[in-house]
Nucleic acid binder design. Structure first.
Lengths: 289, 289
DNA sequence: GTAATAGTGTCTTTGAGACACTATCAA
DNA sequence: TTGATAGTGTCTCAAAGACACTATTAC
């Protein structure tokens, strides 16, 4: 480029003399809603373990929101994308590298952090419970998994998070035109993290229906019933078996293996179907860039 | 709260002594993809005007990317959300206040702006062409509307933008698992704005199908055929009339009025149906917070 | 009449919802 | 045998796709 600007500078000269000035800049945090699916062991040897959706939270050891629970997160650093910052935190907290990570939304309300001007670029991570290794190198000694449940009742959404040591609860009101929500009650969650978690649950549920994100939450080999239980745990409602199987049959690939020693009829083991060269793959596009 | 932290401070004391430190912080820009629908006037008095999707771009008067076209945008300021920053720019560029504005995604690749560490929180705005008033108080003398067309061919997406004075073009390659795209060719678009525009077009197309966003792009009163032409212009394909009408009939409300003097059968005028108190409104939730 | 759009009817196909039924294992 | 899951068949209903047909205006 040899184009000159109004001062007669070419691009190289311009960049050399460029001064970013001293306008105020916010800190940018990458917060992550880390989801996993966990088994609920029953006492009946014949029953399959139930599944539940869990989110990882960290107990705050200092002000503000001391003693309350927050999403894992950290500040973005020069030379990395905000997604890389999120991944760094994900690895620190869970030991999982290469897990699924997706940017959700950037929360920037003034005052959302009482300490300083900090905006949060929220992310969602999905990891298979088999590879979880919480506390791997984490400085957050108080990281815990919380079971996620929501209830929808008359313009309000109730979010319940149940952990080993604590039960958290938030209520959100749907606002004008359902395009906005506002937290009206909040017990135990730090910052605006209740809002972020609700946003993430919403996104996860929506994408479950039109992408193949489920496979980020289950082991490589699974039965169709296990897969259905994962759907049900996330969506919070039961599905019809026949309809469910019709729907996902073209996303999975059967193997020759079966379960055994379960006290009931063995189930065929499936794996995720790999993309064919010439085939149509409508459900793989996640819409993210 | 009278809880004390490890230093024996309560929250108020902590916040008073809190020092945000001097860690590097990025500038945060709010860039906006402003869409509108415009008429394509024909020469046949009987023919309805065609519709086309347009995006507003600004010609850069200085380095970097001097002479190329960029999205309108500006920096986020303390005390406002990034959405408010976007709205400020939207009003400056178009004179439209209260238009539809939605946050898309935060682009943060290092080096995306050669001047400095600047991340971009991209937004999408939809305005009715009737209220457009480009240059209203704008300092960007070179703002122009570009017709948006995309073509999908074998793992690549072609984006074409046609304006009065310029034709821009970019090619994007779908990457691993379609979860990522990469711009492989770019003629005339500044920064990573080709990527942002593609992201916005994608989002708009997807939301058109399951929300009532169309009504942000059309005048208050419209015919069903005009509405269908808007859908077709955005989606880039023709729709079946009968099926289209079945689909949107429960989103619109007919009036007593008809078009006239058109050289063909008059069409009934419709308005957007307002939400009923007790009714179900499945298509109003946009999934945004 | 003619060229255009307005508006509707209907047949087919697809897929979800709902339910019932058979199959098969381990204790 | 029993209690559980595995797996399939099928009827219904709703919605989309595809096409054809009639209606109505300004010139």
């Amino acid at each position: 480029m040899s184009l000159l600007d109004a001062s007669g500078l070419n691009e190289e000269q311009f960049l050399q003399q460029y001064n970013p000035g001293d306008f105020p800049r916010p800190s940018v945090a990458a917060d992550i809603v880390i989801f996993t699916i966990a088994d609920v062991e029953g006492d009946n040897f014949r029953k399959l373990p139930g599944k539940e959706l869990r989110v990882l939270l960290v107990r705050r050891g200092g002000h503000p929101y001391i003693g309350q629970w927050a999403l894992p997160g950290g500040f973005m650093r020069p030379g990395e994308t905000v997604g890389e910052a999120a991944n760094r935190e994900l690895v620190e907290e869970t030991g999982v590298n290469g897990g699924y990570l997706e940017q959700l939304y950037t929360f920037s309300a003034p005052g959302r952090d009482p300490r300083a001007w900090i905006i949060s670029c929220a992310h969602m991570a999905l990891i298979d419970s088999g590879q979880i290794n919480v506390h791997a190198g984490s400085d957050a000694a108080d990281a815990q998994w919380f079971v996620v449940k929501t209830e929808n009742a008359g313009g309000y959404i109730e979010l319940s998070l149940s952990g080993k040591d604590a039960s958290l609860h938030a209520t959100a009101a749907l606002q004008n035109g359902d395009t906005d929500i506002q937290i009206t009650k909040n017990v135990g969650l730090a910052f605006d993290h209740a809002k972020i978690i609700l946003y993430a649950v919403n996104r996860l549920r929506a994408k479950l229906e039109y992408t193949d994100l489920v496979f980020r939450l289950v082991p490589e080999r699974f039965t169709l019933t296990a897969l259905q239980l994962v759907f049900e745990a996330i969506l919070g409602r039961t599905l019809y078996k026949a309809a469910f199987r019709r729907k996902i049959v073209d996303l999975v690939q059967e193997t020759e293996c079966y379960t055994s020693d379960k006290g009931h009829r063995p189930a065929k083991i499936y794996v995720k179907k790999m993309k064919e060269e010439g085939g149509q793959n409508e459900r793989t596009n996640t819409g993210e860039f």
